[in-house]
């Protein structure tokens, strides 16, 4: 089981955002996607999860993602988007339960006891079980972020795509988030080993969660390999055109 991206190009309107991307992600991998703002990280996540159209091939388990039914695609890849606009004040419980839609056995997306059980487990894992009856508009930014993570877990897909999950989280929760993600990656939620594909701005988090780095610049992958080599000061200088090492406390080894 793997994701294969072959000669993939993606557009936003008429602007080409991603140029000729080739990438392979095997089940069980923990991949960090890095790069400066606007380098195409978010677009890459969305294209691979089949939300944005593309040219070339994106194969998940040998099948083109864009020709899959949305629900089947969501069973394989769950994406936690960077933006999480709240328009209607659902409760935390209702929100997390919605995450089970794709994996639920019911054809029409009805809720069964198994879904509820799993949603409760996800809430517990993310530490939001006690917020269960709260409405989304009553939550703090950090609480909301954890609720959405729980919802993404509830989707039960082997590939977890996270777009800056550390947003709005204080340092303690960021550390906890890393533990949760690592725990989840070890967990066996299906026959396929769980994989993480994460965009982080916090390199510390990236190094704690991921083993492989895919570094992007201007819509191209410029590095793909071990995370320690991918986050060297030289690499970061190349990616950001900015001396990251001197900005970050020198004691913090990058």
């Amino acid at each position: 089981m793997k994701i294969e991206v072959k000669n993939m190009t993606a557009y936003y309107g008429r602007t080409e955002i991603l140029h000729d991307i080739n990438l392979e992600i095997n089940a069980g991998e923990k991949v960090f996607i890095g790069g400066s703002n606007g380098s195409g990280k978010t677009t890459l996540l969305r294209v691979i999860s089949g939300i944005i159209p593309h040219k070339g091939e994106v194969l998940v388990d040998g099948k083109e993602i864009s020709s899959m039914k949305r629900r089947d695609a969501a069973k394989l890849i769950s994406l936690m988007p960077q933006t999480s606009d709240i328009y209607f004040p659902y409760t935390v419980y209702e929100t997390v339960l919605l995450g089970t839609y794709a994996s639920s056995g019911s054809a029409l997306g009805g809720i069964n006891a198994k879904d509820i059980e799993y949603a409760v487990k996800c809430m517990e894992d993310c530490g939001v079980l006690e917020l269960k009856e709260k409405h989304l508009d009553e939550l703090s930014g950090g609480q909301l972020q954890r609720v959405l993570l729980a919802r993404t877990f509830a989707q039960r897909s082997p590939f977890l795509f996270l777009d800056e999950p550390g947003n709005n989280l204080d340092i303690k929760y960021r550390a906890e988030l890393c533990d949760k993600l690592n725990n989840w990656a070890e967990e066996k939620t299906s026959d396929i080993p769980n994989s993480l594909v994460c965009v982080f701005h916090d390199l510390e988090q990236a190094r704690r969660c991921c083993t492989r780095a895919v570094m992007m610049k201007e819509g191209r992958i410029i590095y793909d390999g071990d995370i320690s080599n991918g986050t060297t000061p030289e690499m970061l200088l190349k990616i950001y055109d900015f001396d990251v090492a001197s900005y970050i406390d020198n004691k913090n080894p990058l």
Partner: peptide, 24 residues
């Protein structure tokens, strides 16, 4: 009513709905 759960998901916006497996 048959689409009620889809509509719940849709009310989080197109992007999140797509991510959760609803063909927006």
């Amino acid at each position: 009513m048959l689409m009620s759960r889809k509509m719940d998901i849709m009310s989080f916006g197109d992007l999140q709905a797509q991510a959760m497996g609803v063909d927006a």
